[in-house]
Amino acid sequence: MEFLVGHYNYWIFVFLMMLGFYVVVARGNLVKKIVGLNIFQASVFLLYISIGKVLGGTAPIIVDGGGPATYSNPLPHVLILTAIVVGVATTALGLSLVVRINEAYGTIEEDEISGMDKEP
């Protein structure tokens, strides 16, 4: 039981990650693929932040003379903070590639694009 309470969050993250993975692999629409990648990425963010959480701790902002309070681990916060902004920048790059593909092929479905590539 204790094991269940301590680990069910990881299982939900695995579930979310696999949903994102499934979308990326199984769906042909390129915008949908990018949303799937974002879900995948978000599950990794949640994993990092939940590892850094300390039960009974507070946000890692030290108050003056607060004494020896418990703080959550700040290091995952730093890593994920930058990763989120980098994530949106790379998402924008992916979306602009999608726009260019749509201009060149007239579609954003993977099947149709590869079908067009096969025709000479």
Partner: peptide, 22 residues
């Protein structure tokens, strides 16, 4: 997914202050 969940067996419990990352 099954392999990843098998991997979580070795993870520290949620909120554990003595976990290696902390």
């Amino acid at each position: 997914g099954a392999m990843l969940i098998y991997g979580t067996w070795d993870m520290p419990a949620f909120g554990d202050a003595a976990a290696p990352p902390n």
